[in-house]
Amino acid sequence: MMPALLEVEDLRVEFPTRRGLLTALDGISFAIDPGEVLGVVGESGAGKSMTGAAIIGLLEPPGRIAAGQVRLAGRRIDTLPYEEMRKIRGREIGAIFQDPLTTLNPLYRIGDQLIETMQTHLGVNAAEARRRAIEWLELVGIPAAAQRVDSYPHEFSGGMRQRVVIALALCAEPKLIVADEPTTALDVSIQAQVITLLKRLAREKGTAMMLVTHDMGVIAEAADRVAVMYAGRIAEIGPVREVVRHPKHPYSVGLMASIPPLDRRVERLAQIEGAMPRLSAIPPGCPFNPRCPYAFGRCRTERPELLETGATRAACWLYDAASERHVAGARAHG
C-alpha cells in the first residue's frame, strides 16, 4: 500500500480570546493519498477552512495548533519554523482561495505573479518562467494566453481570474492542493467549468486535493472521499458514494436529506432543527446531541470517536457495540 501523502492526526486548533480559550478544531484526523481528492463539507463555521489554513500553516493569529500533528509524505510540518514552511507552501502544498476577485494582487500583471511563484520555487530563469507562465495560462483555458500574460487582474472576469488562481496554485507542481471553496464566489454557470478544470488538472498532474466546500454537488462531482464536519469535528468520513447515498451519522443523514432532488418537485426541503452551536457553547458529549433525533444518555456525556460503520467511519455512539442503543443505528439509514 502506498503511504498517505497527507496525514492529519488528532489536530486541535485553539483561539485564546479575552473571554477564554475557544477550541475551533478538535480531534481532527484524516489522511489523503497521492492523487486522491478529499471533499470536506459542512455548514459555515464548522471548521472546514480552518483545517485547510492549519495544514498550510497560515492560521490567523491568535489561532494556533494546540495538539496533534500534520505530516506531509511522512514529514511532520506543523512544527516547522516559518521559513521552512514557506518553502513547502506553493512548492509542495498549493492553495486556492474562495474569492478570485480579491485573491490576485491588483497591481501586478498576472504573468508576473506566475513568474515570481515559479522563480521562487523552481529556480528557473525569467525567460523560462515566462514561457511556462504562458503555457500554464493555456492549460487553464485562458484564450490568447501569450497576450493575456501581461494583463492585470481587473482585466479578467471572475471565472477567468479563478482559472489564473488555479494556474498560480499549480505552477510549482505541488503534490497537494488545498482548495478552499474554489467555486463559491463564481456564477453558477462558471462553477461547473472551474470544477471540471480543477479535477482534470489534478488528475493529469497526479495532484491530490483537499476540496473544501459546502456544495454537495461539487463534492459528488469531484471528490473520491468526503469528510463531513460539524462544530470543529469530523462527524463522518468515507467514500463519496457511501456518504451521499447511505450516510451513517445522523448529521450526515440530515445534510443529505436537505439536498433538493432533481427528479421531482418538493414543497419544502428537509432541514435539521436548531443551529450549529457557537464555539463558546459546544455541548458536552457529542456536539450534535441537542439536534439529534436519536440522541440517548451516552451522547450527552461522552464524546464519540470515529467508529467503523462498514463503508464509512462516523463519530456516533449508535455504531458502538457497547452502546445500549446500538441497534438503533439501523434506523439512522432512514
Partner: peptide, 26 residues
Amino acid sequence: RTDYIKFARARGLPNRAVHFGHALKN
C-alpha cells in the same frame, strides 16, 4: 489583512517580496 497577501504567503513567496513588494506597493 487582504486575501492577496494571504495568497502571496500561500504561494510561499519570501517575506521580503510579500512585505515590500505586494504589501508596500498597495
